[in-house]
């Protein structure tokens, strides 16, 4: 029983991170119908921005290790990533707006390689130890071991998911996002500047990826410029699993994948963790090609 609960907690915090990244993939897909492969590298940048900010805060004598400091670092990382995401879209993708999806996809791979290699050049290739940006302690509840960071991950993820849901469902710009994702031509005919909505979408998705990067680094305390690859791929799977283009789908897919992974890790087949995750993906897509919550071209973003 304790074992099971333990896995549930581990799965929740892993799944929450996948969910945050998966949302970015699915949002961009919703408005532009392509997979932004550079997304996982924005995730990596989030972790690095947090790393350098934490060091700078320390040097300037700010109170470190408190919750306020942690939140400040998190928000700064998210803002930086939002800017990076918007700039990437403006420079790399917007000039290709009328080209085929394949052209944009290959460009996205190029941007991804640029960020990875640029990261190795600027940050160095050696893994760096990620500092405790939130107060870290281990709670022991009757055999159940919970790291306080896992709770922070969950809290932050829930807060961000709620905020996103509110923005998309209840604000003018969120409604415009849904409109653009359904039909960009019709959206422009009611006066929506689709380019601005696309920028906004990239900004939001990238901010979530940045937050994901920081949270990931907190639980796997070393970071390096290629760290985005594996979680990025997993989050992409999560987005497809949930139904690409569907926001609740991405959140559900991320959580599901987190559970499966940690669940398998706890058994004697732990070395097959990734294989099992992929097998489930293939299985679900065989029976539901649109993903779990994908409704074949309806209800996008």
């Amino acid at each position: 029983m304790t074992e099971l609960l333990q896995q549930v907690i581990n799965g929740l915090s892993m799944g929450a991170i996948y969910a945050l990244i998966a949302l970015g993939y699915t949002m961009v897909y919703g408005v532009l119908r392509f997979i932004n492969f550079a997304h996982s590298d924005v995730f990596m940048l989030g972790a690095f921005v947090a790393y350098y900010t934490a060091r700078a805060f320390g040097r300037w004598g700010f109170v470190m290790g408190g919750y306020l400091g942690g939140i400040a670092i998190l928000l700064l990382s998210m803002t930086a990533c939002a800017v990076v995401g918007i700039v990437i879209e403006r420079l790399a993708y917007r000039p290709l707006r009328r080209r085929s999806t394949l052209t944009v996809l290959i460009t996205a791979i190029g941007v991804s390689l640029l960020l990875q290699n640029g990261g190795q050049l600027v940050f160095g290739v050696n893994p760096k130890a990620f500092p405790d940006i939130f107060p870290s302690s281990t709670l022991n509840l009757g055999g159940l071991v919970i790291n306080s960071n896992q709770l922070v991950v969950l809290g932050v993820a829930i807060a961000l998911l709620s905020a996103l849901h509110w923005i998309v469902q209840h604000t003018r710009i969120g409604t415009a996002m849904r409109a653009v994702s359904f039909n960009a031509t019709a959206a422009s005919l009611v006066g929506i500047d689709t380019n601005r909505i696309i920028s906004f979408t990239f900004g939001m998705g990238s901010a979530l990826a940045g937050a994901g990067g920081v949270l990931y680094a907190m639980n796997y305390p070393s970071i390096e410029p290629l760290m985005g690859n594996s979680p990025g791929l997993k989050a992409f799977i999560a987005a497809v699993l949930g139904g690409i283009g569907s926001l609740p789908g991405a959140a559900l897919g991320g959580m599901l994948l987190g559970f499966v992974e940690t669940g398998v890790s706890g058994t004697r087949w732990s070395t097959f963790r990734d294989a099992i995750a992929f097998a489930i993906l293939i299985g679900i897509l065989l029976f539901r090609p649109a993903g779990l919550l994908g409704r074949n071209r309806v209800e996008k973003v």
């Binding site: 003018r172 415009a176 849904r178 409109a179 019709a186 005919l189 209800e299």
Partner: peptide, 25 residues
């Protein structure tokens, strides 16, 4: 204003949301 061929209503939005989008500006 241009009311396009094939109507192009936002099928994923409610009727009220569609109308409000019409007054986006």
């Amino acid at each position: 204003a241009h009311c396009p061929e094939g109507r192009m209503v936002f099928a994923n939005l409610t009727v009220l949301e569609n109308l409000r989008m019409g007054a986006y500006l």
